[in-house]
Computed example of a mutant assay.
Amino acid sequence: MDDPTNTQPIPSTSALRETVVGDPSPTLVPTPESNIELTDSADLTDAHPVSVASYSLVDGAGDRIAVHFVSGTPECFGAHASVDETTSEVTVRVSVGTLPAAVGKACTMEVVDATLDLLLDAPLGERTVRNG
Rank of each mutant, 00 (worst) to 15 (best):
D2L: 08
T5R: 05
T5E: 09
T7I: 11
P9E: 07
I10A: 00
P11V: 04
P11N: 04
S12H: 03
S12W: 03
T13L: 02
T13N: 00
S14T: 04
R17M: 10
T19D: 14
T19Q: 14
V20F: 10
V21D: 15
G22N: 13
G22K: 11
G22L: 12
P24D: 05
P26D: 11
T27F: 00
T27C: 05
L28M: 15
P30T: 15
N35Q: 09
E37S: 01
L38Y: 11
D40G: 07
S41Q: 00
S41N: 03
L44E: 00
L44I: 01
D46I: 05
D46H: 03
A47F: 06
H48R: 07
A53P: 07
Y55G: 11
S56K: 15
V58M: 05
D59G: 11
G60F: 09
G60Y: 09
G62T: 08
D63H: 02
R64Y: 12
V67L: 14
V67R: 14
V67I: 13
F69A: 06
V70R: 03
G72Y: 12
A79W: 02
H80S: 06
H80M: 01
H80P: 02
H80Y: 08
A81D: 10
E85W: 08
T86Y: 14
S88Y: 14
S88F: 07
V90Y: 02
T91D: 15
V92S: 09
R93E: 15
V94S: 01
V94Q: 06
V94T: 07
V94C: 02
V94W: 06
S95V: 14
G97I: 03
T98F: 03
P100A: 00
P100E: 01
A101I: 11
A102Q: 04
A106V: 13
A106R: 10
A106I: 10
C107H: 02
C107E: 03
M109L: 12
E110A: 11
D113E: 04
T115S: 06
T115L: 13
L116F: 13
D117V: 05
L119W: 09
E126Q: 02
V129G: 09
V129D: 03
R130A: 10
N131F: 12
N131E: 07
G132M: 12
G132P: 10
